[in-house]
Amino acid sequence: MTDHVTAPRSRTRRNANDTFLTFSLGDENFALPILRVREIIGISDITPVPRMPPHVRGVLNLRGKVIPVIDLRRRLGFDPVQDHKRTCIVIIQAGSGADAILVGTVVDRVSEVRDIPPSSVEPPPRLGSGVDLACITGVGKSGKHVVMLLDVDKVAGRDELTSASNKG
């Protein structure tokens, strides 16, 4: 027997499942689960591909791998904007196991990595947002901001890339 009591968990210690990368599209804040984020790169040469739905920007060369890139603005129903200095590409892993693919998502700007514990997440609103709600798993509070948590597989899964439909 030990009468030694474990110290309360440090508040800064992160549970990776509750950790998100937050970024913005216009005035709206979004978050992607950090476990699905592979890396963030600056906007780089994207080669357009014929016959793709408008939200598929093309393909890019990620260290010898050719990966598709989607424009998250168009995917979620925002108006497209010109790329600018803060525009970047978040490389995420969509799908899992043998179906896992890397996909680049173009976002306006990356904000920070934040904990958003399940207790502060509410179900997505039924109405009232211009955003494609099928892609939202919930609405979380992070500081004084409200962020929409994205469903990676809905946003960038294989089915999504191959379907000709688009929300642009």
């Binding site: 050719v66 598709p68 191959t162």
Partner: peptide, 16 residues
Amino acid sequence: LKPVPGLPEIPGIAGA
């Protein structure tokens, strides 16, 4: 030639 996982087959394009 590299495969492009995730994208559908594009008629007329063999690969990247």
